[in-house]
Design a binder for these strands. Structure first.
Length: 762
DNA sequence: CACCCTCGAGTTCA
DNA sequence: CTCGAGGGTG
């Protein structure tokens, strides 16, 4: 499969190259000699095809593509500027193999041992800055590489671009053309988009569009207020320089030294550039930043590798399009385009109704994505997507798919706006906001809406709840599914602990298509069904008892004239439910599904009160006296307890044997902190620590008297990080918090901070 | 009251 | 993982 899409990609690449060459040639001859060598129709067709391919394969997009330069040239707005030296683009490679091959070739062509300069390829806007005797006199976009747009006036407001170089005047060349990349830092981009939506303007689809849009704003016709806004946006742009245009007899020998020099002049250079002494090191750099890609301050789409030695640049020269001494490796795209087939809504366990996007499945960052949440109606509107649009999709933090916005060029005529339903899609109740002015719509039918019951039952079984292995998403659905022939055994969670094998085995589940929600029809025309709680079924005529002895043994359950053999799953579920009855009190509190009461609040309550009875007896004031429980949570608990069907849950669970108490608890009040090696310390565990489960690590921290926090902050004393640790590790390093591996963590648990004093770095 | 931590809730795919 | 919102603290 990978092979197939690779082939497709290669074919597209070849075609894109051919189309670009052709279109550029046509345009050149038209602009320079005014000779039209092609009919308009042919030209348009080629351009449309190129657009299509670039949309389908965003990684093939390029700043000097005719789709951006020729057609979209904004020459009427900004004066054209002839570049002193042509701004070349870089040749691209799309795989490590190709990169390796290029490095080997370049190494040989350069006659042996080459030092490489590796840097991040910023996804921004190329810019050329001309300084005369240290004073900025001209700023231009790249345009088609030969001619760009004069943006000198706008650049005045970009704080990152100095108007005057630092240092002695005599030290600067008479004229020097510096090249760099203008971009938005991701945090600035987020802030910018927040303000855009706040002021009712549409958000930018990505940081590059935002940078491009900001740099190319026009001052004409703007009132003072809007002028201020425009300058403010410009002020937030960032820039890193990455080279010098024409420069005879530079005073340095290497590209890396050029950067040092530029930095000395007060020009911002990337903190991520690195000199690599071997091809292995270069490949290591590529891998390293591939992993860290999401936590870099700017968007990046690849790595640029340059030969460090400037003499070699001279020697190798350039083709008509690109220098031979540099290459760009492009990471597989984290942003792709796909079609938004529809927007559907789901109902969560709290009744919240959330719209989600259904898309034509696409590969993004290693997996095939079909769905992405759209959170609520306002978000759908803010993103400005219509059903039928081609949309930009990425994975936030490399995990959760996120729709960024529409590709307006590809909006079809019949694209339709999403309308939020007024009725619950699962139970038909009229949706309404919980509180006045709430954005979120909720299904008010908490007790019997199938979606909510299903969600609550699933939550009861979850890791943060009673941690019932056999009770996951599928089982929860099977237990509450209303469309089976027999009555579902659970109409609410009140009956969960009363479940008998006889109730489970008859359950039949209709298999539904994940995409459409429609029942899956088998080849023989009947809907496909599953019986998760039984493996066999045999019907005997009424009044007969003629089962074989073997059948009698296998048939543990008999109902009417049907004999069932329960599945392992059914037995497992009942066993697990039995165990859950005496699990820790906090888990049982979480299982009640009280708003705002999750594992942490439940633990605080359980520690303080020791039993559900004591919690019920407490007033709102007494509840909010508990550390970590404030007036809102206290009120939420009190409110929950006033509802009859909630009390019924407690009563029936209690009758079925759920303990709802911590044995030997001394009664309500603050429990003395556990004295241990970690008393008074906050520790965060992240990644997979050898010898610990995620929960196990937390328990171990608490058992040692410490606080197990979920996120890293200034208050964190230690971070225990195993392989696969992500942003928490990065954060810890940023804040200079000591990081321990699994062994160090073990030492800490046994001996406290003193035991790891010599391990703790920085 | 303004901050900074945290927590809770919703979420996707293999 | 990210968002919004609750809780605690200066």
């Amino acid at each position: 499969m990978a092979n197939e899409s690779e082939q497709e990609f290669d074919a597209a690449r070849t075609e894109v190259d051919r189309l670009r060459e052709q279109l550029t040639a046509w345009a050149d001859s038209y602009y320079t000699s005014d000779v039209q060598t092609v009919t308009d129709a042919e030209y348009d067709e080629a351009m449309a095809r190129l657009r299509e391919l670039e949309t389908e394969f965003p990684e093939l997009e390029s700043q000097d593509s005719p789709t951006r330069t020729v057609g979209g040239r904004a020459s009427t707005l900004f004066d054209p500027v002839e570049h002193r030296e042509r701004m070349l683009s870089l040749d691209n490679v799309f795989s490590i193999e190709e990169l390796d091959a290029w490095l080997q070739r370049a190494n040989q062509a350069a006659g042996g041992k080459v030092d490489w300069l590796t840097e991040l390829k910023i996804d921004g806007l190329a810019i050329s800055l001309t300084y005369e005797r240290g004073r900025l006199t001209k700023a231009a976009t790249r345009g088609d590489g030969r001619t760009g747009e004069d943006v000198t006036e706008n650049v005045e407001y970009i704080a990152a671009i100095p108007q005057q170089l630092a240092g002695e005047k005599q030290a600067f060349p008479e004229v020097v053309e510096v090249r760099g990349e203008v971009f938005f830092r991701l945090d600035d981009f987020t802030a910018l988009n927040a303000r855009q939506t706040e002021s009712g303007e549409s958000a930018f689809a990505n940081p590059r569009n935002a940078a491009s849009g900001s740099l190319r704003q026009k001052a004409e016709g703007k009132n003072e207020e809007r002028l201020q806004l425009m300058r403010d946006r410009l002020g937030r742009l960032s820039m890193y320089v990455h080279g010098i245009g024409a420069w005879e007899n530079p005073p340095v020998a290497n590209q890396s030294e050029v950067y040092e020099l530029l930095a000395k002049w007060g020009l911002p250079t990337s903190p991520h550039a690195r000199v690599c002494k071997s091809i292995e090191e270069v490949l290591g750099f590529v891998e390293e930043f591939g992993e860290r890609r999401a936590s870099i301050e700017h968007q990046l789409d690849g790595i640029v590798v340059k030969i460090d030695n400037l003499d070699l640049h001279e020697e190798l020269g350039a083709t008509s399009r690109a220098p031979r001494w540099a290459i760009a490796y492009k990471y597989p795209p984290e942003e792709v385009h796909t079609e938004l087939l529809g927007i559907r809504v789901g109902v969560g366990r709290t009744g919240r109704v959330t719209p989600y996007a259904v898309m034509r499945p696409v590969e993004v960052a290693g997996s095939t994505v079909t769905f992405a949440t759209l959170h609520n109606q306002d978000v759908v509107r803010q993103k400005g997507v219509l059903i039928g649009d081609t949309v930009v999709l990425r994975k936030a933090g490399d995990v959760i798919p996120e729709v960024l916005g529409p590709v307006l060029d590809k909006r079809p005529e019949d694209a339709t706006e999403f309308v939020m339903p007024t009725k619950c899609p699962e139970c038909g109740a009229t949706l309404r906001p919980m509180k006045e002015g709430d954005v979120d719509l909720r299904c008010p039918n908490a007790r019997s809406c199938p979606a909510q019951v299903r969600g609550r039952v699933e939550h009861i079984g979850s890791r943060n709840g009673l941690d019932i292995e056999a009770l996951g998403e599928v089982t929860a659905a099977a237990l509450t599914q209303p469309d089976v022939p027999e009555t579902p055994p659970l109409t609410t969670e009140a009956g969960l602990f009363e479940l008998q094998l006889e109730q489970l085995v008859p359950i039949v589940v209709t298999v539904r298509d994940a995409d459409t929600g429609e029942p899956r029809i088998d080849d023989d025309g009947t809907p496909r069904q599953r019986t998760p709680f039984r493996v066999g079924k045999k019907t005997y005529p009424p009044g007969t008892e003629d089962m074989t002895a073997a059948e009698r043994r296998a048939a543990k359950v008999r109902k009417d004239h049907v004999v069932y053999s329960p599945s392992k799953q059914a037995e497992k579920l009942l066993e697990e439910l039995e165990k859950a009855k005496t699990k820790e009190l906090w888990r049982q509190l979480v299982a009640l599904n009280i708003r705002h009461v999750g594992p942490v609040a439940a633990r605080a309550l359980a520690d303080w009160f020791g039993s559900l009875a004591a919690v019920r007896a407490a007033s709102v004031e007494e509840l909010s006296a508990v550390e970590g429980v404030g007036p809102i949570i206290a009120e939420s608990i009190a409110q929950w307890l006033t509802e009859d069907w909630h009390v019924e849950i407690i009563d029936r669970w209690t009758a079925a044997g759920v303990r709802f108490a911590t044995p030997e608890h001394p009664g309500p009040g603050k429990i003395e902190d556990v004295e241990g090696p970690l008393t008074g310390l906050t520790v965060v565990a992240t990644g997979s620590l050898e010898g610990f489960t995620r929960e196990g690590a937390k328990e171990a921290i608490i058992a040692a008297g410490g606080k197990a926090a979920g996120s890293v902050s200034k208050k964190t004393d230690f971070v225990a990080a195993g392989p696969g640790a992500g942003s928490k590790l990065t954060k810890a390093e940023e804040l200079g918090i000591p990081v321990l591996d699994a062994d160090g963590f073990r030492l800490l648990l046994e001996g406290g901070p003193a035991a790891v004093a010599d391990l703790a770095i920085g």
